[in-house]
Design a protein around this nucleic acid. Sequence first.
DNA 1: CCAATATTTCAAGAATTATTGTATAGTTAA
DNA 2: TTAACTATACAATAATTCTTGAAATATTGG
Lengths: 121, 121
Amino acid sequence: MDKQLATTLFESLASGIRLDIFRLLVKQAPTGLVAGEISTALALPPTNVSFHLKAMTYASLINVTQEGRYQRYRANLTVMQSLIDYLTAECCAGNPEFCFDNEKVTACCDSNSLLLSTDSH
Amino acid sequence: MDKQLATTLFESLASGIRLDIFRLLVKQAPTGLVAGEISTALALPPTNVSFHLKAMTYASLINVTQEGRYQRYRANLTVMQSLIDYLTAECCAGNPEFCFDNEKVTACCDSNSLLLSTDSH
DNA sequence: CCAATATTTCAAGAATTATTGTATAGTTAA
DNA sequence: TTAACTATACAATAATTCTTGAAATATTGG
């Protein structure tokens, strides 16, 4: 997870519509939804949804697969986990005592040491 | 953590400059830095840094305290932790098996149950 | 008070992003 | 093949965000 990717992912999440789309797709994992279903569920014009889906796909926040005439979108939960790891590393980095309550820091850092593999921590 | 706050925070992190500022302040926690130090460290015009600092402060991603003629900025690690919790809840929500590797899911969900207090999970 | 310093506000323009209707491309089923 | 359907591409406009220099505000030290 480099800065460029992190920035792009945050950009992808920094819109009410895109956040709605992502949360909808997480709820529908692993099946996902086709574009029309997303458009209907959020009551938005198909072109607008398509615009945001394209941006989110480019950012790798979601994936798309073709199913005949449908385009099925799924949340990319792997990259989301990487983003959480990145954010956790940013937050904890050298300063766990200011990031977490005392009673929580042990649980957090234990899980971090398991979840973070490559990062220095 | 409601959607509005989450969106605002993602917006705050969705710029290379603001991400640089935040990472710089995390590294300097808990002392923080005054505006001029940030401007110098990142080699950016003071007005531009001020613009971003204002946005980040409004979003509560950072805090500011006055020290004479200086304005000292600090990373708000508490809200960052809330954001990580929110993102974790979004990511895991109902679908831990698609979010984490099998060997990691136990560690993750254990820490989540400790870290998440109000959210249904 | 005055001069120097630190930071923000303001204003203007540049750049980017968002929204929507229309048109196009691709797919399916009869 | 044709008609219906799904989704995206395109184009135009609207809206927002970014960047920067100049001016304004506030504080300190002499």
